[in-house]
């Protein structure tokens, strides 16, 4: 086994290992999984010199506390450092025994912590992304000790003190952009008026949102066909169930679905959406090439 480097002292609202997910298993019903905010996860890895797909901790809201089991270089990105102050996404060192607690973030939902050299974890169909809802692994419990991979990716030279990222890459989740939406396969089933209702109003992210899907509250929409034969779904698909309140499929969402899809959120912005909290208001615009 690898060397113990980090203990989850308290899992708080929830801590899981995530990478960029898996490919090729959707046809068996296995969702892609992986970090919901790929932008923040990638940057955390980049900061500490890891490959983009290296496992990182995905931390929900706050309350989580981790403790170093040896001196390690780490980076924290996402909600916990959505401070609005440029330069706050940077690397730092934790000494042996030093703890790091995640305080309630000012904005955003998910925080990402990367450890230089990476973290080892069980993989299911090639990804460390557990899928508890489908019988594959579980989120990390308090007391879990994470290990360095047996063959860690060779990290940066130790001389590097504190790396930081371009402040324009550091997102402030208080101010989401307008989300670009491509017409979905059932676009034609929605009337002109219904499409207008979708793009013309601001929607509220529902508290019934999780890694499988983000639900939206607002003026309900209507659709010509209530259900269609189940077809494959992409993360970012905007499905309209019979109650007219859209569901945006996230990375742990069902691989097939029978609700008509009005559109597809631009994949580059799905990470942004993932950081929008329940109660936050968002708007959509028609995407074009």
């Amino acid at each position: 086994m690898g060397e113990p480097i980090l203990e989850i002292v308290d899992a708080g609202f929830g801590v899981a290992l995530q990478d960029l997910g898996r490919r090729g298993w959707k046809r068996f019903g296995v969702p892609p999984g992986g970090a919901l905010d790929r932008h923040a996860a990638r940057l955390a890895n980049q900061l500490v010199g890891n490959l983009p797909d290296a496992p990182v901790l995905e931390i929900l809201y706050h309350g989580a506390c981790v403790q170093a089991r040896r001196r390690i270089e780490v980076a924290l990105t996402g909600a916990a450092v959505s401070t609005g102050r440029p330069g706050d996404w940077h690397t730092f060192w934790l000494s042996d025994g030093e703890a790091l607690a995640i305080a309630p973030p000012r904005a955003g939902v998910w925080s990402y912590m990367a450890v230089s050299g990476g973290l080892a974890g069980t993989r299911w169909f090639g990804s460390v992304s557990a899928f508890p809802r489908g019988g594959l692994g579980s989120v990390l419990e308090s007391g879990t000790v994470l290990e360095r991979p047996v063959h860690p990716f060779v990290p940066l030279p130790p001389a590097i003190g504190r790396r930081w990222i371009d402040p324009t890459e550091q997102r402030d989740y208080l101010y989401p952009p307008a989300f670009r939406v491509w017409p979905g396969p059932q676009w034609q089933l929605f009337s002109e008026a219904t499409r207008g209702a979708f793009f013309g109003q601001s929607w509220t992210v529902s508290s019934r949102s999780d890694r499988t899907g983000y639900r939206l509250d607002g003026g309900p929409m209507s659709c010509a066909a209530e259900v269609i034969p189940s077809e494959p779904v992409l993360p970012g698909s905007i499905q309209v169930p019979p109650d007219g309140r859209p569901i945006i499929t996230m990375r742990d969402g069902p691989t097939v679905g029978g609700y008509p899809k009005i559109g597809l959120l631009d994949s580059a912005q799905l990470s942004w959406l993932a950081q929008c909290r329940p109660g936050q208001r968002i708007r959509f615009v028609v995407a074009s090439t």
Binding site: R23, W25, K26, R27, P229, E231, P232, T255, V256
Partner: peptide, 13 residues
């Protein structure tokens, strides 16, 4: 990247 079947459709990513 991957191909996935539904009942009447195939998704190509």
């Amino acid at each position: 990247i991957e191909a996935t079947l539904g009942f009447t459709t195939m998704l190509l990513e």
